[in-house]
Write a protein that binds this DNA or RNA. Structure first.
Length: 640
RNA sequence: GCCCACGUAGCUCAGUCGGUAGAGCACAUCCUUGGUAAGGAUGAGGUCACCAGUUCGAUCCUGGUCGUGGGCUCCA
């Protein structure tokens, strides 16, 4: 065995160290002390290890700093361990299960007869602070599988026992981490000692199924967040507060856009005048853009005979999400999707290859029986309207159609100001159709993405029951992802409904069907849009584009005249001619996030002009009414 | 559907250790005619989510229902 080993440092420098040298010491030697204090772990040949790791061979070695995403994740993981220790200290008899770091912090799932209260969280936090102050080292130990099993069996930790038993059979040893007598099964690495834990906060307690399976027992999950510094933690908590302020449910009420009423029913949106107007503006935009791209606008019925849903496969695969009703002793299904009527339109006459592709677009209102617990504001409701289309084409046209849809999505996201990510979802467990068709459909989607040069990730088993799909997840201002657009490739429904076209060869052929939405659910999209803009919609989308504010009642006649001229120019304007002070009216318009407030007083009446004030506080001075109309038109034409 | 918490005026929230409730904003009326984020006075508003039970008496305690919030599972 070699006496000395050769270590390659991040800067490429090579140094010799004794066999068994501690990696933390090597990293510390190469760095200045101040920087080393923020080193949470090290990398050896690219693999993260504890700073206490001993090197037994030549290796490339570098530090992992807490300022990196990887380092922060290690710190948070260690925080979750300390939380588990604190919980067991405070509540004897608690069983631990798993506790990883997540995007914004960490959690740990516990099994305990009592339920944790917010007061308990404070108690646990306090104990965590004590553990952190004691600066207890995290000690790693590798033991045999049998030894670990015995240890956790003795401790009564049945979840850990299950985890060890479920390890692949070729795993012979497992690693344990001990801090101050608390032992946890963990792959690691961890921070060197609890003293590095300075800034954290426990946020909430929630239920979570063991191993994420709803057939399993529900555990209690405690969520926390943590950062390297108090400043970073404070920043994060501020962002959470910001998110609450721009919550679309709050803004929806404040801006008088919509309500979801208990008496009417859960998950059912009631659009108020301003919300309905916003929605109408979006829908008008949709119709225009679809007609431009060769789509036909169609409209199907809300209910269709149950027999038809049986034929399509919805009855077998989607029944739990459907509502049914009876008419003249005949069972009808309320549509959860729009495709059936579109197929009937296709089938209404004999189609030639010359007719294809046919693109049927419908702002289709659908009903889905979502479980009570999943409903959430506008994004998750029971009745919603999709900007839905079904494209029937030849297999040869598939690629071009998919690429055109992907371009459409990109255009739309640009107009509305969103970034997005692309995912390809493949065949799920419960599905219909042949293997060959699934293969063909998946390849068609993937090929189009590649031809468009779009980056995407693959989501195995996440497709619809009738076909694979491309999902576009848009990212809002708070970096949260929402599924909106989707393209689904379907060979099965055309088969089940015996759709056909006459080809060049005079023979019958089967068309392919694409299901696709651009914004997805209009309800969800508006919810995300509200939060994206904090309710301050771009001018072209604002339900009220301008408010006329008169200084005194003697200015009302000119106000009425201006209102008439703006309405004639298709500008959405309201007159605030109330007997209130100007400042008061400005404030109200400001809180309603109205893009323009047009002040009308003696000066404007005399000059026959208006004085626009933008919602950012800027005054544009006195300008002619025609000049204001031109300004609004120009901005709207640019979707600003 | 599951776990936990919550449900008081249009909104944000107090409050009642069980004796049917209050503030601010909003709303109405009056005064004020005021130039870019709140002028003043007065007033009206609540079966304390709903249904049972316990109690002399329930908004408060217990149970159920509905709904909301945070999660899990699911999903446009």
């Amino acid at each position: 065995m070699a006496e000395r080993i050769q270590i390659t440092l991040p800067d490429g420098k090579q140094v010799l160290h004794p066999f068994g040298a501690v990696v933390g010491k090597i990293v510390a030697d190469t760095d200045d002390t101040a920087k080393f204090r923020s080193t949470v772990a090290a990398k050896v040949n690219g693999v993260p290890v504890d700073l206490s790791y001993r090197l037994t061979a030549d290796a490339v070695v570098g530090p992992i700093d807490v300022a990196t995403p990887e380092g922060l994740s290690i710190l948070r993981h260690s925080m979750s361990h300390v939380m588990a220790q604190a919980v067991q200290d405070c509540f004897p008899g608690v069983q631990v299960s798993i506790g990883p770091s997540i995007e914004d912090g960490f959690y740990y799932d516990f099994d305990y007869a009592e339920t944790f209260t917010p007061q308990d969280l404070e108690k646990i936090e306090e104990r965590m602070r004590q553990i952190a102050a004691a600066d207890i080292p995290f000690e790693r130990r590798e033991v045999s599988r049998a030894e670990a099993l015995a240890l956790f069996q003795e401790k009564g930790e049945t979840y850990k026992v299950e985890l060890i038993n479920d390890l692949p059979s070729d795993v012979q040893t497992v690693s344990l981490y001990t801090e101050d007598g608390y032992v946890d099964l963990c792959r690691g690495p961890h921070i060197p000692s609890t003293g590095m834990i300075r800034a954290f906060k426990l946020l909430s307690v929630a239920g979570a199924y063991w191993r994420g399976d709803e057939r399993n027992k529900m555990l209690q999950r405690i969520y926390g967040t943590g950062f390297a510094t108090q400043e970073a933690l404070d920043d994060h908590l501020r962002i959470l507060e910001e998110a609450r302020k721009r919550d679309h449910r709050r803004l929806g009420r404040e801006l008088d856009l919509f309500q979801i009423n208990e008496e009417a029913g859960a998950g059912l949106v009631i659009w108020h005048p301003k919300g309905a107007l916003l929605r109408t503006i979006i829908e008008d935009w949709e119709r225009k853009e679809h007609l431009k791209r060769g789509y036909d606008i169609v409209i199907g019925p809300q209910i269709l005979k149950a027999e038809l849903w049986k034929r399509s496969g919805h009855f077998d695969h989607y029944r739990d999400h459907m509502y049914f009703t009876e008419v003249d002793e005949q069972s009808y299904g309320i549509k959860p999707m729009n495709c059936l009527a579109h197929m009937l339109i296709y089938k209404s006459k004999i189609r030639s290859y010359r007719d294809l592709p046919l693109r049927y677009f419908e702002l289709g209102t659908v009903h889905r029986h979502e479980k009570a617990g999943v409903l959430h504001g506008l994004p998750r409701v029971r009745q919603f309207t999709q900007d839905d289309a079904h494209i029937l084409c030849t297999p040869g046209q598939l690629n071009g159609e998919i690429r055109a849809i992907a371009d459409f999505v990109g255009y739309a996201m640009g107009i509305f100001g969103f970034e997005y990510e692309v995912e390809l979802s493949t065949r799920p467990e419960h599905s219909i159709g042949s293997d060959e068709d699934w293969e063909l459909a998946t390849r068609a989607l993937e090929g189009a993405l590649k031809d468009n040069g779009m980056a995407y990730e693959v989501n195995e088993g996440d497709g619809a029951f009738y076909g694979p799909k491309i999902d576009f997840k848009l990212k809002d201002a708070l970096k949260r992802k929402w599924q909106c657009a989707t393209i689904q490739c379907d060979f099965t429904l055309p088969e089940r409904f015996e759709l056909s076209y006459i080809g060049e060869d005079g023979e019958k052929h089967r068309p392919v069907m694409l299901h696709r939405v651009i914004l997805g659910s209009i309800e969800r999209f508006i919810g995300v849009l509200i939060e994206q803009h904090t309710g301050a919609f771009p001018l072209w989308l604002s339900p009220v584009q301008a408010v006329l504010v008169t200084v005194t009642e003697k200015h009302i006649p000119w106000g009425e005249e201006v209102r008439k001229r703006l309405l004639d120019a298709d500008i959405r304007v309201e007159g605030d001619f109330r007997n209130e002070k100007l400042g008061y009216k400005i404030r109200e318009a400001q809180m309603q996030k109205t893009p323009y407030m047009l002040v009308i007083g003696d000066r404007e009446v005399t000059s026959g002009q208006v004085s626009p004030r933008q919602r950012d506080g800027k005054n544009l001075g006195s300008i002619d009414v025609e000049a204001f109309i031109a300004l609004v038109r120009e901005r709207c034409a640019q979707y600003r």
